[in-house]
Amino acid sequence: MARAISTRRQITVTILAWVIGITIFFPILWTILTSFKTEAEAIASPPSLFMFDWTLENYGEVQERSNYFRHFSNSVIISLGSTVLGLLIAIPAAWSMAFVPAKRTKDILMWMLSTKMLPPVGVLIPIYLIFRDTGLLDTRIGLVIVLTLVNLPIITWMLFTYFREIPGEILEAARMDGAMLWDEIVHVLTPMAIPGIASTLLLNVILAWNEAFWTLNLTAAKAAPLTAFIASYSSPEGLFYAKLSAASTMAIAPILILGWFSQKQLVRGLTFGAVK
C-alpha cells in the first residue's frame, strides 16, 4: 500500500515537474522558433509551432543592421569584469565574516541583503547624475562598477555560506602544522572553497549578463551590451517580432550554453547550505 502511494506520488510529481519546466521554457522556445519565421508568419493567427518555412534571413538582417559582436564583447567585459571585481571584494569580506565573526556580523549581512530590497529605479537619478558628472555614462568601466555594486551582496552572501561550511578546525590544524596565514589561504582554504567560488562566479556572470535596468539606462551606444541590442529591436521598430526574436536568441544563446554546461555546478551553488 505504501509503495502504491509512493509510486502514484512519484508519477504526479514527475508530471508536475515537466509541466512547470515546459511552462517556464515555453516563451524561450517560442522566441527561438519565431526567430526562424518570416515577419508575416511571426504574426500569423493562428500561429504555427513548427509547420512554417524555416529561414535564417532575420539573423542576417539583424547582423547587418547592428553590430552583434560589439554588443557581445561589451556583455562579456561587463559581466566578467563586474564578477571578478565583485569576487575580489567579496572573498575577503565573506572570509572575515565566516571565520572571525564579530558581534554585528549578522546585522551586516542583513543590511547587505536589505540593499537588494530597494527598487533600483529609486536610485536611478542620483546614480545617473553621478555618472554624468564623472564621465562614466556609456562606459564599460561605469557599468562594471554599478553591476559590481548591484551583485556584491549576493556574491558575499553566497561565499559566506560556502566558507561557513568549512570547519574552523581544519584551518586551526593548518596553523598547528606550521602554516602561516598565506599558506593557510593558498593550500587549505582556497582548494576547499573552489567549488563555492566557481558557482558564485557562474551565477554572477549570468546575473550580470541578463541585467537590463542599469545597462539600458546608463548606456547609449559605445558601452551598450546585448540587453541594449535586444531593446533596440523592440519599441521604436514596431512589430518586428521575427527580428526581435532573432536578436533575443543571439543575446541569450551564449549564456544559455554556459548555463547548460555548468548546471550541475549552479544547482549545487544555489542549494548549498540549505541541506547539511
Binding site: P167, E169, I170, E172, A173, A174, R175, M176, D177, G178, A179, M180, H187, V188, P191, M192
Partner: peptide, 27 residues
C-alpha cells in the same frame, strides 16, 4: 600556533579533505 613547535590531534581529526593521506601527513 605555527611557531610553538607543538602538534595537535583534533576530535574531528581535521584532515585536509582535498589532499591524499600522503599529502596530509606531508603537509
Amino acid at each position: 600556533p605555527s611557531k610553538r613547535g607543538l602538534a595537535m590531534v583534533f576530535q574531528s581529526y581535521a584532515l585536509y579533505p582535498h589532499m591524499s593521506v600522503r599529502k596530509n601527513i606531508a603537509f
